[in-house]
Each structure stands twice: as structure tokens, then as C-alpha cells.
């Protein structure tokens, strides 16, 4: 029963979406303004494209979910991460992740007026897994994709430690990383703007 229902929903949704992209001719046909085009009904499948193999998917499926799904084998801690950071990251993010010139990674002292609006990993990021995912896919900016998984675990540990979120000895791996508590998570709310006159 459930299966049948879901098949119907999918059919309904896909037909509806198909309709939304017919340039309005269905509406014009139903209003009697134009003749129905002699275009054929869609087949169940066009048969274009080829099946993806598990191997080729695995090669590019690099995303990490907040629950840790996708995290690779390996581990690291802040002590090893500190040395890698100094060598590969500090030129753009500063000696301690505060000084820049590029994005501030560490919250640090925010007592001054200028730094009060700091949005860094320690006070703005809701999930620790995002640090791993982003650093592995995009950093270092001038050499993206060059870090090993072990290096990324170590750098993630260093950045979380520098933000006061974990101990310098804490070992991060696929099991422990998703468990790191992120203080900013409680602030996140889904978009509540809606159609209509209310300004949000």
C-alpha cells in the first residue's frame, strides 16, 4: 500500500513538474486557444546516459554528512595539525588563525568593537564535520585537493582545538569527529520568511 502510494506521488510530482516546463501550451490548449501539439508522449525512460559503476562513484563521492557518513579511515590530533597548519595554511589565515589576510578561522579575543562580529569555526559553525569536508575539498586555496585524509583529520583537530572545542590530545577519526559539540548549533533556525507582506 505504502509502495503504491509513493509510486503515485512520484508520478504525480513528475507529471506536475513536466507540466511546469511546457511553456504553457497545455494551459493554452485547455483554454481552447491553440491546437494540441502532435508531440509524442514521453517514454518511461529515454535510455540516454549509462549506468554509473560503484568504483567511479566512490572516486568522486567526497561529501561528509553531519552524522559522519562519508568520513574516511585515518585519524589525527591537534599537535600534528599545528605543524601542518604552520606550513600550509598560516600564510593566508595567520599564525594563529586570527590574523588573516584571508578568513578568520579562530574566534580568539572578540572584546574589541571591530572583532565583535567575528564569525569563526568556534562561534558560528554548527557541525565539526563541515570543517573536514571543506578543508579536504577546497584548501589550501592555491593547492586544493592536495591534502591526505590524515592531514585533514590533524588540521581539523588543530582548528577545533584552537577554537577551544577539543583537547590538544583528542584523537579525531570517523567515530569521534561527528561527536564534537559545536556551541553555535543551537542558534541555527530554518528560514521563516514566507510569501506575503511580512518583512523578516
Amino acid at each position: 500500500m505504502i509502495k503504491k502510494l509513493s509510486v503515485i506521488t512520484v508520478l504525480f510530482v513528475s507529471l506536475a513538474s513536466y507540466r511546469s516546463y511546457t511553456d504553457g501550451w497545455q494551459e493554452r490548449v485547455s483554454e481552447g486557444l491553440v491546437a494540441k501539439p502532435d508531440t509524442l508522449e514521453w517514454p518511461k525512460s529515454f535510455g540516454f546516459g549509462r549506468p554509473a559503476t560503484e568504483k567511479e562513484i566512490a572516486a568522486i563521492d567526497i561529501d561528509i554528512r553531519p552524522d559522519g557518513k562519508g568520513l574516511p579511515a585515518g585519524q589525527g590530533n591537534a599537535v600534528t595539525g599545528k605543524a601542518i597548519y604552520a606550513a600550509k595554511c598560516s600564510a593566508c589565515h595567520g599564525a594563529t588563525g586570527i590574523e588573516g589576510p584571508n578568513d578568520r578561522l579562530v574566534v580568539g579575543d572578540t572584546s574589541s568593537v571591530k572583532s565583535r562580529r567575528v564569525k569563526a569555526i568556534g562561534n558560528y559553525w554548527p557541525y565539526a564535520t563541515t570543517v573536514f569536508d571543506y578543508v579536504r575539498r577546497a584548501m589550501p586555496f592555491n593547492e586544493p585537493g592536495s591534502l591526505t585524509d590524515e592531514e585533514v583529520y590533524s588540521l581539523t583537530a588543530y582548528l577545533l582545538h584552537a577554537n577551544g572545542l577539543i583537547d590538544s590530545k583528542k584523537v579525531l577519526n570517523a567515530k569521534t569527529l561527528p561527536q564534537v559539540d559545536m556551541p553555535a548549533k543551537k542558534y541555527y533556525v530554518p528560514d521563516d520568511r514566507e510569501d506575503g507582506p511580512v518583512i523578516r
Binding site: 561529501d63 561528509i64 554528512r65 553531519p66 564569525k119 569555526i121 558560528y124 559553525w125 554548527p126 557541525y127 564535520t129 563541515t130 569536508d133 571543506y134 577546497a138 553555535a184 542558534y187 541555527y188 533556525v189 523578516r200
Partner: peptide
Amino acid sequence: YMTREETSKYTESVGPAKI
């Protein structure tokens, strides 16, 4: 997936304690 572009960026503070 809670990617960087939907957490660290492209989110906005609304009020003192809401992102």
C-alpha cells in the same frame, strides 16, 4: 549535508541569538 556554503556562509544572523 550542512556544507560550508550553507553554514559558515549564506546564513544570516537575525536578532541576538538566531542564525
